[in-house]
Every structure is written in structure tokens, then in C-alpha cells.
């Protein structure tokens, strides 16, 4: 069974269809890039995956569990902005990722020291150890997003959802964030869904690129129909298909 199964998903807002008949299977460890025009429902799809909103019809099954009705630690998330807590220091943001699951959101003294050490180890890994005591407002956009990703991963989610995580960053920072994310994935295999406006980024990072678009279009009523997945590209090997020879053809044999 696939890790994530999307079955016949519909979403309407006040009678206006946004998504219709979405079906998708995602295997564990895959990186799915989601692209499409503005307003095509790709962010709605991510919110449905997050269980922040519930489908009008159909269901999303993760790990063969019953469909979720609200956000849970099973699904981690990084938004374009506001993903970290501005009132906590960089280190406390990571400690919070462990502490929030307790009844009062605070770790007992004995466990706190260990959690701080783990937080420092994570900060070391994401290159923010020197900013441990600073507040997020003092961090650059790229650093904040690295912290947000580190924080999301601390809770050990089954799937990680990224909603245009690098959309607000300048091009140079964005490229270094791509490397950062690729390194993280090389170290820890994880299943990722990333919504992106940037096609190049989508193909560079993703194993698969899925495209949301409307298959039916009424020029007199543009909101009459919803969007669905219209393309599902194999984006491995730099987004150039047919690089990986699956059949034994006896003709081409890459060395």
C-alpha cells in the first residue's frame, strides 16, 4: 500500500468547486512537487493534506490510518511565512517542537536539559548554532525557513508539507536552501509535498512533479469547474525523462 492515498477528492467553497476528482498515490520517501497557475487549488490541496481543511467528498489516507480531521504531528508543515514562533528564541523554537505535545506544553526540568542538547545538535546541523539565543526576528529569511524546517522535522512527521517555502527568498538564498533540503533528504529519507510557483525548483527538487489545472473551462463562468491533476511528471535525473534505462535493451548501457 502507498503511504499517501488520495481517493476521488472534491473540495468546494460555498458551492464553488476548487478541486474535483483528485486521485494520487505517493510512496514512502518520494518528493512530490505541486505546481499550477495561481488559484488552481494547489494550496487548497496542501491544506487538505494537512487536514487543516476537510474534503467535501473523497478522502486522504496516510499510513492506512483513518482520515485525519485536524492537524496532527503525523503531518509536519513549513509555510512561506510565520512558521516559527516569534516570541521564542531559536533554540526554544526547537525545544517547543518536543514540549508542545505535553499536557501544558512544558517539559519537566529533567527532560528539558536533554531536549536543549538535542536542539543544539539540530541547530548545528542546520547551521544556526551561533544564533541559538536570538529571536527569529533577528534571522534572515533563509535562516528562518531553515529553522522552520528543523522545527517541523523535530516532531518526526510521517509526511512533510512545504507551502511555497522558498517563495519569499532572494534567488541566491533560494539556491542554498535547495542544497540544504537535498542534503537533509540524503541524510534522512522523508516523504515531502512541496507547493511551488517556480517550475525549475519543482523539477530540481522533486521526484515527481504534479500539475493542477482545470480540465473543463466555461468562458462565461470561470469558477464553474474545479481543478484536478492534469500531469504527473517523472522529475528524477534533473527532470529529463528517459534518463534511467529500465528495460534491458542491449543497446544503451550507461556506465
Amino acid at each position: 500500500m502507498s503511504l499517501v492515498q488520495v481517493r476521488n477528492l472534491f473540495k468546494t467553497y460555498e458551492g464553488r468547486p476548487i478541486l474535483e476528482r483528485v486521485n494520487l498515490d505517493v510512496e514512502e520517501g518520494e518528493f512530490i512537487s505541486i505546481v499550477g497557475a495561481s488559484g488552481c487549488g494547489k494550496s487548497t490541496f496542501l491544506r487538505l493534506l494537512l487536514a487543516e481543511e476537510l474534503p467535501s467528498r473523497g478522502e486522504i489516507i496516510v499510513d492506512d490510518a483513518p482520515p485525519a480531521v485536524e492537524p496532527s504531528p503525523q503531518r509536519g508543515v513549513v509555510f512561506q511565512r510565520y512558521s516559527v514562533f516569534p516570541h521564542m528564541s531559536v533554540r526554544d523554537n526547537l525545544v517547543a517542537a518536543e514540549a508542545f505535545a505535553t499536557p501544558f506544553g512544558r517539559l519537566p526540568r529533567a527532560k528539558r536539559a536533554a531536549a536543549r542538547e538535542r536542539a543544539m545538535a539540530t541547530l548545528e546541523r542546520i547551521g544556526l548554532a551561533h544564533m541559538a539565543d536570538a529571536f527569529p526576528a533577528a534571522l534572515s529569511g533563509g535562516m528562518q525557513q531553515r529553522l522552520a524546517i528543523g522545527q517541523a522535522l523535530t516532531a518526526k512527521p510521517r509526511i512533510l508539507l512545504l507551502d511555497e517555502p522558498f517563495g519569499a527568498l532572494d534567488p541566491g538564498t533560494r539556491i542554498s536552501m535547495h542544497e540544504f533540503l537535498s542534503e537533509l533528504r540524503a541524510e534522512t529519507p522523508m516523504t515531502v509535498f512541496m507547493v511551488s510557483h517556480d517550475l525549475e525548483e519543482a523539477f530540481k527538487l522533486g521526484d515527481r512533479v504534479i500539475v493542477f489545472d482545470k480540465t473543463r473551462w466555461d468562458p462565461t463562468d470561470p469558477t464553474a469547474f474545479g481543478a484536478t491533476i492534469t500531469y504527473d511528471f517523472d522529475a528524477r535525473d534533473g527532470g529529463i525523462p528517459f534518463q534511467r534505462i529500465k528495460e534491458e535493451t542491449h543497446v544503451l548501457r550507461p556506465h
Binding site: P71, F79, R81, S83, A101, P103, A148
Partner: peptide, 15 residues
């Protein structure tokens, strides 16, 4: 986003 993020870290309404 912050409220959703807290929930994905396992926070209850009280937390």
C-alpha cells in the same frame, strides 16, 4: 500559520 504549526507539533487547545 502559527496555530496550525503548533498543532502539527502536537499542541492541544490549552497548549
Amino acid at each position: 500559520e502559527q496555530l496550525v504549526k503548533a498543532q502539527t507539533l502536537g499542541a492541544s487547545s490549552l497548549v
